[in-house]
Design a binder for these strands. Structure first.
Length: 225
DNA sequence: GTCCAGGGCCTAC
DNA sequence: GTAGGCCATGGA
């Protein structure tokens, strides 16, 4: 039997509890990318409505979104919150995709990973989490996505400092785990599921699968590392 | 009525 | 370089 690192043990525990999550929801890669922008600081339920709104208006292709009227996009995505800035971001992103890559995602994701990430980060409205969500879930690139739940869950468990930088956290995960796209996808999905169910700002630790070994859960003494 | 959600940008210090 | 304000809807 092969010994596993602590992070993989956490993953197995979550997998046992929640099963494979089958993330990211989305019928096409472009829809996944759009969802990554729409979900910024927003409940996914509201994003689903916004995506349905875009779909209903025929705006879920790079070309149609790039040429759409800003007001039309705004009205389609209103439910996702911050709808004015998100409409601008979506249109800008789609225009960039059309102008630079002819709207072709195969060309986009053929670019070298580090260059592609830098390029995404240079776009207005795409920060590290959004860029990495796009790379991992739409592009099948081995980058680990750090979000508020990741920070909260592993901070409370004592793995990391909750105020470590995005870059530091990402290095921690990527250097502690095998570089496996499917693992990265499902692990992040498991973390979000745990976060939504148990590890909110006000934690609901009673039935949390990670409560043993978590500072908030308190069943085990915290390890000083 | 209050809190929170699968962030990111901009400004002031 | 970093803390704080701002963007906004909808469900619990």
């Amino acid at each position: 039997m092969r010994s596993e690192g602590p992070l993989l043990r956490v993953y197995r525990t979550l997998l046992n509890r929640f099963g494979h999550r089958g993330w990211w929801p989305g019928e096409t890669r472009f829809e996944v990318m759009v969802g990554a922008i729409l979900t910024q600081n927003t409940n996914w339920k509201n994003v689903e409505k916004a995506i349905a709104g875009l779909k209903q208006k025929g705006l879920l292709t790079p070309e149609s979104l790039a040429s759409a009227d800003l007001r039309t996009i705004e009205s389609a995505i209103r439910s996702s919150g911050y709808y004015r800035q998100k409409a601008k971001r979506l249109k800008l992103f789609a225009k960039w995709l059309v102008e630079k890559y002819d709207g072709r995602l195969d060309l986009l994701f053929a670019a070298p990973l580090s260059e592609l990430r830098q390029e995404l980060l240079s776009l207005n409205g795409i920060g590290p989490e959004t860029a990495d969500s796009i790379l991992l879930y739409a592009g099948d690139k081995p980058v680990f996505v750090i979000d508020a739940y990741t920070r909260r869950v592993f901070g409370r468990m004592g793995f990391i400092s909750e105020n470590a930088s995005y870059c530091e956290l990402q290095r921690f995960f990527e250097s502690s785990l095998p570089s496996d796209v499917e693992l990265f996808k499902d692990f992040h999905a498991q973390i979000v599921e745990l976060g939504k169910t148990y590890c909110k700002k006000k934690p609901l630790c009673a039935d949390c699968p990670l409560r043993r070994g978590c500072k908030s859960g308190g069943a085990l003494p915290k390890s000083d590392s």
